[in-house]
Design a protein around this nucleic acid. Sequence first.
DNA 1: ACCTGAACACCGTTCAAGT
DNA 2: ACCTGAACACCGTTCAAGT
Lengths: 201, 201
Amino acid sequence: MCTVSTSKKSVPTDRYHHGDLRRALVDEALVLLAESGDGGFSLRELARRVGVTANASYRHFANKDALLQALASEGFRRLSAAQRDVEALAADEEKLLAGGRSYLRFAHANPALFRLMFSVIPPHRRGDELSEASQAAFETLRQAVARGWSGGEPDPDSVTRAALRAWALVHGLGQLLLDGQLDWLEEDPLGLAEAVLADTV
Amino acid sequence: MCTVSTSKKSVPTDRYHHGDLRRALVDEALVLLAESGDGGFSLRELARRVGVTANASYRHFANKDALLQALASEGFRRLSAAQRDVEALAADEEKLLAGGRSYLRFAHANPALFRLMFSVIPPHRRGDELSEASQAAFETLRQAVARGWSGGEPDPDSVTRAALRAWALVHGLGQLLLDGQLDWLEEDPLGLAEAVLADTV
DNA sequence: ACCTGAACACCGTTCAAGT
DNA sequence: ACCTGAACACCGTTCAAGT
């Protein structure tokens, strides 16, 4: 009676049709998101592709919003991981710029997921998993700003303000980029966005 | 036979149910957009509110996208007008900052319309009316940047680059603002966004 | 415990009428 | 010329089963 119970719910296998339907739904939804370019995919289409009935997903997610939150959480985790990887390789003074570049590349490579993370589910509707993932992502940014601090005493409020300014610039570039707003200005929109970022930071 | 024909189509009144159904649809859609906060409203709900059948709108718009384009065009016209009004009242060195502030206030006051203008209909899908309205809006920004030019020769490319940087910052702040991303940082998100803008410009 | 089948109240859009 | 009524192929979601 003191063997396997690491937590309350010791679900034995939780697999049936695809081994793990919940994971299959999340994985396939990320593919659908990448394919559709914009933000639209239907629960029914997702179920069809995974090979189950339309309402089978309700055994694993309360509703469509809960599934979207799981996807957005995964997005924030991937974004944070990309930031950390890239900053680990960069010199101290270039960590912030490198982080900004990876933010832009993430937005460019995952437009629908990016929109899901920031625009579809506002912070006041985020559940625990998503709150945690998104706050960790902002912390990554804040630390990059604090590390590159060149003034005197880095009091927390100034750092937050500076982080917000850096975030706004890179977020605006990313949003303009993935909305196609930079397409008519030059041949390589991503390159243009990175150039504007490098000019400023 | 040479009296009234100012153009090919000399529609006598083009009014029936509400005087002018096309205008009634646009006006009520703007109200629905303002009410819903986010971006979702249905053609059927709009028709219900205006007092016509679901498909009556197809006499005036090819499809839902065409209606959305008309709304987005109206949005760009209002944004440009607000910019011009505000810049006319400001001193030369403050025109750019004043324009940026009005951009932020527009985003804050019209979140769904703002999203419609920039994110829902990408530039490559814009029709003539919308293309013209949006390009005029960017021209307003570019001119504000050119007027505030402090360096030497203002060659067009440098001005475009600087305009893009200013646009990205203000657009990023606006997007973070209307996505509720600034809500947990302070009591007044709009004030915070304006403060960051004033710090930078 | 996990999934299916049938149903409900919605969509956008089309087509054949009505006035 | 402008609008209605009925229909089609979709949605998200729920409820009563099936194994």
